[in-house]
Structure formats: structure tokens, C-alpha cells
Nucleic acid binder design. Structure first.
Lengths: 156, 156
DNA sequence: GCATCGTTTTAGAATGAGTCTAAAACATAA
DNA sequence: TTATGTTTTAGACTCATTCTAAAACGATGC
């Protein structure tokens, strides 16, 4: 297991990030780390998500795996994605109507969806928002979601 | 049509907000303002959303209206909510799995969902986030979504 | 008042993501 | 080898949403 670092500079201050995208870990190590029993099927799902950072839906994961010759059922893909999400090994994203998308990158980051082509990109945060959260509320986490045009679609 | 102002102070700077929640407007004025032809059914849907800031689903709007004696079909509620969203008169929210919720408040604000009771609250922004948006991307708007515990649920 | 034309509403069928069920497969321990 | 618990599976089911095609409605012109 290799760990890569990424760094950038804002207003003269250097930030060093342990970028999860760059942590090379096997799917088995990943399941162990999250205390999830590994099975052939779970390894396949995790590997798919490690290799495809396209924020796929359950059905896209299923299609991708079966197209590549894997023998796994639709129900197992749904089950596995739910187990992984419940154990905190995946992030479930509600972006479009009526479908859940999955992201294996767990560090705080935003998502950008191109209005035209529908592709979803990861965007790093440089400064968190702040809120007038009324007395008595306790926030656990904040999601950031942007919509706009990606470089391919902005001109056409 | 009366317009109310709201103001608050951060770091010694006064901000004055024309708070949409406080703009008293009839449903007919609201549809006219968004260039949407009014009908009895559309007025009913807009009035429901003006009176219920609970971010209801289409089915909740339908139930609420029919329970109150309105004669409107399920399909019309779905159609109307789509028309209003397409014309920019409503905001569609993807918060939970598989349901779209609707918000008539259009000014930039965040949403807070209680993990325990599921209620959704509006939260005002005091500072926007910033992002490392790669070269060539153009963002149109940003959504903020928080999860945590509301005052009623935090103790129990 | 009546015919025409475009828009809106409607009931019910269809779609499709996701869940449920109950049985089979598999793994682990005794 | 048996017993026990977990995981996988096919197919049935659910339920939000969309689709379809007909009916209702509203505005306009005559």
C-alpha cells in the first residue's frame, strides 16, 4: 500500500492533502479497513468503483461488471452497495431524479454536474461555507453540489 | 404586494436581505411574475407550497390538496410541479432516495435534514464555499445540503 | 351563440429503480 | 458430519414518476 501526497497553495499557505484518489489500496485491504467481510462479489464491486470514478448508479455498476464477464446478480450489486454505504465505505449521492450514485472517495469534496452532457466531476474544496444554523441544531456533514457546463460542452 | 426586509450583521458589516419568505404575494401574482399561465390547478399547487415550507414531495402535495377537499388529479400535480420547475418558479431538491422534493424559496440557501426525524429545514448562508474548479468549467449555481440532528431529536 | 385551435387536465397503463422473499450456496465452528 | 450464520440469487413486488390518448377548457373569430 503506497500513499501519495498532493499539495497546493492559497494566500501563501501551503496545504498538504493525503488524496484518497492517490492511495493505492487493494479492494481486499479496503474492505478489511472498513471491517466488512470480503467475498468475491464485494471485491468486484469495490474494484469497479476504484477503477471508475464516474459516480455510477447501481445499474451501471451491474452492467459494467456483467459486460466485463463477471457473474453477479443485480440484487447482489444493490445489496453490496447498501452494505458498503451503511458501513461508511462509500458515499451515496442524490444528484438526479430517482437514482442513487456512488462515490468511493470519502474525503470532503464537491460534485459538479454538467447540465448538457450529465457527466459528474469531483471538485476539491478550498474553503467551506458557513451558515446561520439556528440554536439547537447540530450538523454532522455538509454536501456541496454544483451545476454548470464542462469544458467539452461550454462551446457547443 | 408587500415587501419585507430582513437584516443581519457579520464582522461589523450590515447585510440587508429581501427575504422571499417574507414577500407577500398572491399565487396569481407569482405565476404571472414567472410568465406561467394560471389555471385553477396551478394556483392550488402554488398556494400549497406557499403555505407549507416543509419541502413536500409531489405525492405529499397531492395528498395535502385532496385532503383539503381540492379536486385535482395526481398526474396534474406531477405535471404542474415539472412546469413550475422548468420555468424557474420552483427548486427541485434531491435529498432522499427516489423522491423529488419542492421548495418555493428561490434565494440561495442551504437545506438541513434531521437524520432521525427526517424533517428538512431551510438554513441561511452567511459565507459561500469556494472551490478549485478546473480550467474550462463554468458553474451556474451551487447547492448546500447538511445532515445532522434537529433540536427535538438531539436529546432523545 | 357556435366552430376552431391550442393548451391543460385526467385516468389508467407503463416504466424502471430499488426492495423483498424465500431458497440455495457458502463459510465457519463444533 | 452436522449445525449455524452469512451471502447470493431469481423473480416477484413496490412505488415514484412518466406516458398516452381522450376529454375538458379557454381564447379567438365569425
Amino acid at each position: 500500500m503506497q500513499i501519495f501526497l498532493e499539495y497546493f497553495c492559497i494566500y501563501g499557505i501551503f496545504f498538504v492533502i493525503l488524496h484518497p484518489k492517490l492511495i493505492k489500496m487493494t479492494s481486499k485491504e479496503y474492505l478489511n479497513q472498513h471491517h466488512i467481510q470480503w467475498t468475491q462479489e464485494r471485491l468486484q464491486v469495490v474494484e469497479y468503483l476504484m477503477e471508475h470514478h464516474t459516480h455510477p448508479t447501481a445499474i451501471e455498476v451491474y452492467q459494467g461488471l456483467t459486460d466485463a464477464g463477471a457473474d453477479i446478480s443485480r440484487a447482489t450489486v444493490f445489496n453490496t452497495l447498501n452494505v458498503l454505504t451503511d458501513k461508511g465505505a462509500l458515499r451515496a449521492l442524490q444528484i438526479e431524479d430517482g437514482v442513487t450514485r456512488y462515490d468511493i472517495l470519502l474525503h470532503p469534496h464537491a460534485h459538479f454536474r454538467c447540465i448538457k452532457c450529465g457527466a459528474i466531476y469531483d471538485v476539491e474544496l478550498t474553503r467551506k461555507a458557513s451558515f446561520r444554523l439556528p440554536e439547537g441544531f447540530q450538523s454532522c456533514h455538509t454536501d456541496y453540489f454544483m451545476e454548470g457546463y464542462c469544458p467539452t460542452c461550454i462551446d457547443s
